[in-house]
């Protein structure tokens, strides 16, 4: 009888554990790391010269061998190799790229791969997260990718650059409170405390505003949308916006000449009848923000104005007589397009 009871208890525990795990996914950091690592692949390709790394990371998207990674020089190779968590090696082919999000999809000849569970919503600051990646390429041979942990520091639109070039993607990213801008990390998985995919670690970039190196990840919804576009062949072929960028002239603003490259964006004249005049902008105003974006220089103002989308009203903040004045700029007129 006691024997039966013990067996019974064991059975219950097993059932509960199994049901619990199925209901909520793995829960301890150890389980999360082990589970999430199965979705991460190590990618080896071109590079190794002039300080460029020849490796990065990728995430298994579907059981039939679709792998998401970042678009980079590593993929400029005839032979791209993917090493799975179980140690299997596959030659990969490049399915396509999304130049705006700097994403790429690879394909390997495999079935029944462990595809990951994607978190559909956005996580907020303070969310505990884990990153799994081919960090510094230290996981050699069949070794499992490296695990890091930390929190999401902020969720903000990406304003970043690589060298002097602006990053093409300007949507939201997760800024991470731990160091992921390392060689090999791009393409790695960011997962939450239950192992659900939150996003993909991005490429090395510096913040435009502060010049600091960014630790960030592309949110999962953007990742999935980008990969779907790639797979279905619907990716825009150009990286630029389809409409011509809005500019100061179309706005009707003439600024004080930028002689030293560091002149603050003071308004010199406002073209009569222009959107700027209708918004109430005046000569001698100092422009300090366009929408939520602070502009401290003429260049920053030009960038901010360039990102105004047709149809959206925009608030421009200026300093006039020592006070901040908000000017409401109506929807961008259609005739601003060429």
């Amino acid at each position: 009888m006691r024997h039966v009871a013990v067996r019974f208890l064991v059975a219950v525990v097993v059932v509960v554990a199994a049901v619990g795990l199925h209901a909520d996914g793995p829960a301890t950091p150890r389980q999360v790391a082990a589970s999430a690592a199965r979705h991460v692949v190590k990618i080896y390709g071109a590079g190794g010269v002039r300080g460029l790394e020849a490796y990065q990371s990728g995430i298994i998207l579907s059981p039939d061998g679709r792998i998401a990674t970042v678009m980079s020089t590593v993929l400029d190779a005839d032979d791209i190799e993917c090493v799975l968590d179980d140690g299997r090696r596959f030659a990969a082919t490049l399915v396509g790229v999304d130049p705006r999000r700097e994403l790429a999809v690879l394909s390997i000849e495999a079935t029944d791969l462990p595809a990951c569970d994607v978190e559909a919503g956005r996580a907020g600051p303070g969310t505990r997260a884990m990153a799994i990646s081919n960090l510094f390429g230290v996981a050699v041979g069949d070794e499992r990718a490296s695990v890091q942990r930390g929190v999401i520091a902020a969720v903000v639109p990406l304003e970043a650059r690589r060298g002097a070039a602006e990053a093409p993607y300007a949507g939201d990213v997760y800024v991470l409170d731990f160091t992921t801008n390392n060689p090999g990390s791009p393409g790695g998985a960011l997962v939450d405390a239950r192992g659900r995919l939150l996003g993909m670690l991005g490429k090395e970039l510096r913040s435009t505003a502060s010049g600091i190196w960014l630790n960030y990840a592309l949110p999962a919804d953007e990742l999935v949308a980008g990969c779907q576009e790639i797979v279905s062949g619907r990716v825009a072929t150009t990286t630029g916006p389809t409409a011509a960028p809005f500019d100061l002239r179309a706005l009707g603003l003439v600024l004080v000449p930028d002689l030293l490259g560091r002149t603050p964006p003071f308004v010199e004249t406002v073209v009569p009848g222009s959107p700027a005049e209708q918004a109430g902008l005046r000569p001698d105003d100092l422009v300090v923000a366009v929408g939520a974006r602070a502009v401290a220089s003429r260049h920053a103002l030009e960038m901010a104005v360039g990102s105004i989308v047709a149809g959206d009203p925009v608030r421009i903040a200026v300093i006039r007589d020592g006070r901040v004045v908000d000017c409401e700029l109506g929807p961008r007129p259609e005739e601003a397009r060429p």
Partner: peptide, 18 residues
């Protein structure tokens, strides 16, 4: 806190922004 006037990030330095 946002600085006024141009203190845009210098190319390779940790510079003043917000």
């Amino acid at each position: 806190i946002e600085p006024l006037g141009d203190v845009a990030a210098a190319k390779d330095a940790v510079a003043m922004g917000p």
